[in-house]
Amino acid sequence: MVTSFLIMAVLAGQAVTGGSPPVTVEIVASGHVETPADRFRVSGNVLACGATKAEADAALARKVAELEASLRAIGVTKAQPLERPSLAGMMGAMSGTRGSYGCNTVDLKDLLASPGAATKPKPAERLGANAPVSFDAPSRPVAMRAIAALTAADAKPSEKPLAILIDDTTARRAAKQQALTKARQEAAAYAVSLGSGPATLTRISEKQDWNSTDFAGQMVRMIGLAASAPSDSVATDVTLTVEFSLAER
């Protein structure tokens, strides 16, 4: 009896409103903008050696301080934290670590020059301390000078600087507006195809997953970064899931 009453109520409601309930359309749209970079990031890893861990740590602190001072002299500063996880952060993390093996390598030329060197007692093993470093330069030419300085300090820098935006809020908002415009256009096309009334926006979601256009776009750029021509612009990708209600005309 209750079920029959509910069915009758639904049918009565549809009759009052003119028939079928509104159609819900969920549209995934993306926006892409290119913005001139405001910094150029260079990353590397500094290694220092010592007879003890304390000695290696102290040597590392001196080496990093000297490197920072020399880079400040050409207008390069320690990297500022970015607003959100980004390609720049991923590239910096990929600089990795360097173990003590770097403090105990034997030059092959020395072995060849001294045939008996391989049989001599090995020197005491030295310990290493390392630290990842990232710096921001105001332009690409200055960033290339920073890379040269890091190379001279055996800091294993990236081959190319990475163009970044310290604050990408404006760029992301522009990309969102672009995505929203696309979603509205698609919803309007659905309304025409279905012969319904105007599309009413009911929900917007920025939630993303590993399959999102944002993440995929960053990964594609990271993989192609080494082979691509240097760019002084930063690409910003945003994906929105937008829901519309299409009422019957």
Score class of each variant (00 low, 15 high):
residue 81 P to W: 06
residue 82 L to Y: 11
residue 68 E to Q: 14
residue 78 K to D: 05
residue 65 A to N: 09
residue 83 E to Q: 09
residue 61 A to H: 11
residue 52 T to D: 02
residue 59 A to P: 00
residue 67 L to V: 14
residue 77 T to F: 11
residue 76 V to N: 04
residue 75 G to S: 04
residue 63 K to H: 14
residue 85 P to T: 01
residue 55 E to F: 10
residue 77 T to I: 13
residue 83 E to A: 12
residue 62 R to E: 13
residue 78 K to E: 05
residue 74 I to S: 03
residue 58 A to I: 06
residue 58 A to N: 02
residue 58 A to V: 05
residue 73 A to N: 06
residue 63 K to S: 15
residue 60 L to R: 07
residue 81 P to Y: 00
residue 57 D to M: 11
residue 64 V to W: 11
residue 71 L to F: 10
residue 82 L to N: 03
residue 85 P to E: 00
residue 68 E to Y: 13
residue 51 A to N: 15
residue 52 T to C: 03
residue 72 R to N: 08
residue 51 A to C: 12
residue 75 G to Y: 06
residue 85 P to H: 02
residue 70 S to W: 02
residue 63 K to W: 15
residue 78 K to F: 00
residue 75 G to K: 10
residue 79 A to F: 00
residue 53 K to M: 04
residue 73 A to F: 10
residue 70 S to F: 03
residue 56 A to W: 01
residue 76 V to W: 05
residue 81 P to G: 03
residue 71 L to N: 05
residue 78 K to L: 09
residue 69 A to H: 12
residue 56 A to T: 09
residue 71 L to W: 07
residue 63 K to V: 15
residue 67 L to K: 08
residue 82 L to A: 04
residue 65 A to I: 15
residue 65 A to K: 09
residue 78 K to S: 08
residue 72 R to S: 08
residue 54 A to Y: 13
residue 53 K to F: 01
residue 63 K to C: 04
residue 57 D to A: 13
residue 72 R to Y: 03
residue 55 E to Q: 13
residue 84 R to T: 12
residue 54 A to V: 13
residue 81 P to R: 06
residue 51 A to M: 15
residue 73 A to C: 02
residue 57 D to S: 14
residue 66 E to A: 12
residue 80 Q to M: 07
residue 74 I to M: 14
residue 82 L to G: 09
residue 55 E to A: 15
residue 61 A to M: 06
residue 67 L to H: 08
residue 82 L to V: 15
residue 82 L to F: 12
residue 82 L to W: 00
residue 53 K to R: 10
residue 52 T to A: 01
residue 52 T to N: 00
residue 78 K to M: 08
residue 71 L to I: 12
residue 68 E to C: 11
residue 75 G to L: 05
residue 81 P to V: 06
residue 85 P to L: 02
residue 62 R to S: 14
residue 55 E to C: 07
residue 58 A to M: 05
residue 81 P to L: 03
residue 74 I to T: 14
residue 82 L to D: 04
residue 65 A to L: 12
residue 71 L to A: 03
residue 64 V to Q: 00
residue 51 A to K: 14
residue 59 A to Q: 10
residue 81 P to H: 02
residue 75 G to E: 03
residue 60 L to S: 04
residue 53 K to W: 00
residue 75 G to Q: 06
residue 72 R to L: 07
residue 61 A to Q: 10
residue 66 E to R: 11
residue 81 P to C: 05
residue 60 L to V: 14
residue 73 A to W: 12
residue 83 E to P: 02
residue 81 P to K: 01
residue 60 L to Y: 09
residue 54 A to H: 11
residue 70 S to G: 13
residue 70 S to H: 05
residue 64 V to P: 04
residue 61 A to F: 07
residue 54 A to R: 09
residue 63 K to T: 15
residue 76 V to K: 04
residue 52 T to M: 01
residue 72 R to P: 00
residue 64 V to L: 11
residue 81 P to T: 06
residue 85 P to Y: 07
residue 82 L to K: 06
residue 81 P to A: 07
residue 52 T to P: 05
residue 84 R to D: 02
residue 72 R to G: 09
residue 57 D to H: 13
residue 76 V to Y: 01
residue 73 A to D: 08
residue 68 E to N: 07
residue 61 A to P: 11
residue 64 V to G: 02
residue 67 L to A: 07
residue 80 Q to P: 02
residue 64 V to N: 04
residue 82 L to M: 12
residue 52 T to Y: 00
residue 74 I to K: 01
residue 53 K to L: 06
residue 56 A to D: 05
residue 78 K to A: 10
residue 62 R to N: 12
residue 65 A to G: 11
residue 54 A to M: 09
residue 56 A to P: 07
residue 67 L to E: 07
